[in-house]
Design a protein around this nucleic acid. Structure first.
Lengths: 346, 346
DNA sequence: GTGAAAGCGCTAACAC
DNA sequence: GTGTTAGCGCTTTCAC
């Protein structure tokens, strides 16, 4: 039990050479049924499992895939990990976690460590797409899939969400309720996901004939603190927004906390749309309107791209785009007409 | 870049033998400062990183730790992963994910795969403590730490929460509000965590002089469905409970969903205490009373135990117990006196 | 203080 | 069809 069985022991027990065992192991043709039978039996009896390290050293392959994100406890990333694992495990691949904590320096170190482990591939949501040397660092992997990120100068596969579709639906909804001053809190502009949301927000407002006010778009780290701070700033504005789109689940947490701290409620004090659906948004009172996507599917797709890349290293880079959609619930409401008030003043 | 540097190349560049390089690499004494300097320089220039597979084959150690749970997307487990990784990474260990999906068969297979990978240790929350052969399977690892689980017949380290402390405070609170019929929904009794909550619930009720009604304790899979179903059954009881303790975050999700579906609210329709604090419980309207613990700390502790075990394989098994505490919020309320109502009937 | 050489478990030529 | 053998990159005796 303690001592793992080796291929040599299997060979001896089966009365064949190690190469024959290896051939059976790797499903090579040209092995007699008789030999194959004896080998399989010996493997079963000895509960033989080939040593991954030895195999890895010989073949240069490890059947391991790096999974590098800023925070595995973020429900988006943990759901992705689950999806990726579900796809990769049947092929014998294991996920090796790399939690960078949003620090590009630490991320670089983690990627280096993953390479040292000779992982066969990498699924990664880089912290900062503009880090110098990043393209080279990613290119050093046999296979690499970016999730909701974009890095120039390196031909890697990627998967992302069509943020514009859901954002368009959300803003149409808010506009139809009479909202003219809509704000957005989003994450770092060094990440495609956040950038796409900001871009979609701006272009869609324009399309709707609503002049986007630069002061109503706040960006920062993807954290509850950023969300809370942004809400505070927005409410202190001379002409505050009547609706807000929170561009990430952590930002939503911060916004909701800050609203509560001010005794404000949704949608009375402010109409709110969150990005990414979680238990919190679904079970909130009232339930919060969301721009949804399937995070598990994002992980599955990333894994699928990775498998294809491993199967055909020479294929041109692919980009998968998964849908987002707006789901109306009860956190946005028709704007109370203020015209009466201003009329009284005139 | 493509081709990883080998120890041989470093040796050649430094003008020494591979053994000297290896000695420098492993911080052996008896290396001249001159040689050490030349080696370190060569390593820096070549960006040398020792090959993990080769090292693993030679030493039998992989600097990898298996992390096996039923669902990495469960916030408890993902927070644990984060904590464990934070402790292990500085020591050069990587976490290898194993997502068993709550299926003992799949779990057994995953553990076998981890062993094949020669992971140095295992952090695991087994799905079913009563699985035959489990003790042997766990014992096959050099180091193994159980989290909120207990397996007889194998001397492994473990870390768990003191569920009784938080439960006692919660029930005292409910009793002080006048609740006499308190229910519990908990998870599988084949897991220490759930079992401890049930046991604490029963003994504490008894201590408070409240006869525990067996019909008010429901157990099942740790899922939202279980929570929802249990709530339905409890409300259909001839004499339904006035308060409920939900023994896990998924169960809480199910309970809240089912309450909403029935048009019931907390604490009006039912007083509620949740186990494990998440965004949902904190930001719910009203905020939900919880029995809290620090899930990141649970992961950190597990990792610390693992490191100690790796450092001293012969040490006696240790058991760490982390605190839980009740935090009162607004989801439980004084029981409306029904005496008046029954009096009217008399 | 340093080098030569064996070998960890496996795969892949290459011979038969 | 099957066996023999040479390493993959590293650590670790054992000489010197």
């Amino acid at each position: 039990m303690r001592v793992p069985t080796t291929i040599r022991e299997v060979a001896e027990r089966a009365g064949v050479s190690v190469s024959t065992v290896s051939r059976v192991l790797n499903n090579f043709p040209y092995v007699s049924e008789r030999a194959r039978g004896r080998v399989l039996e010996a493997m079963a009896v000895l509960e033989y499992r080939p040593d991954v390290a030895a195999r890895s050293m010989r073949t240069g392959t490890s059947r391991a895939v790096g999974f590098a994100v800023s925070d595995i406890s973020n429900p988006l990333f943990s759901a992705m990990a689950k999806g990726a694992d579900a796809v990769l495990h049947p092929y014998g691949y294991s996920l090796v976690l790399a939690n960078a904590g949003g620090d590009p320096g630490r991320e670089a170190e983690l990627l280096s460590a993953l390479r040292q482990r000779r992982v066969d591939g990498l699924i990664v949501a880089v912290a900062d797409e503009t880090q110098p040397g990043l393209a080279q660092r990613l290119g050093a992997f046999n296979a690499c899939v970016l999730v909701d990120r974009e890095v120039r100068g390196v031909p890697v596969d990627s998967i992302c969400s069509d943020h514009s579709a859901g954002m368009a639906q959300a803003l149409e909804h808010l506009a139809s309720l009479g909202h003219r001053r809509v704000a957005l809190v989003a994450g770092s502009q060094a990440q495609l996901g956040s950038r796409a949301r900001v871009a979609a927000f701006r272009s869609e407002l324009t399309r709707l004939g609503l002049e986007p006010d630069p002061g109503l778009v706040r960006t920062g780290e993807l954290s509850a603190e950023t969300g809370a701070a942004a809400l505070g700033e927005l409410l202190r504005l001379e002409c505050p927004p009547t609706a807000l789109v929170a561009g990430n689940n952590q930002l939503t947490v911060g916004v909701l906390g800050a609203l509560r701290a001010r005794g404000l409620r949704v949608p009375g004090g402010l109409s709110l749309v969150a990005c990414d659906d979680v238990d919190l948004t679904r079970l909130h009172t009232p339930p919060i309107d969301v721009i949804r996507r399937d995070p598990v599917e994002l992980g599955r797709g990333a894994a699928a791209l990775l498998l294809e890349r491993l199967a055909d290293p020479a294929a041109p880079p692919r980009r998968l785009v998964l849908p987002t959609e707006f789901e109306r619930r009860s956190s946005s409401t028709a704007l109370v007409e203020l015209v009466a008030g201003s009329g009284a003043g005139g």
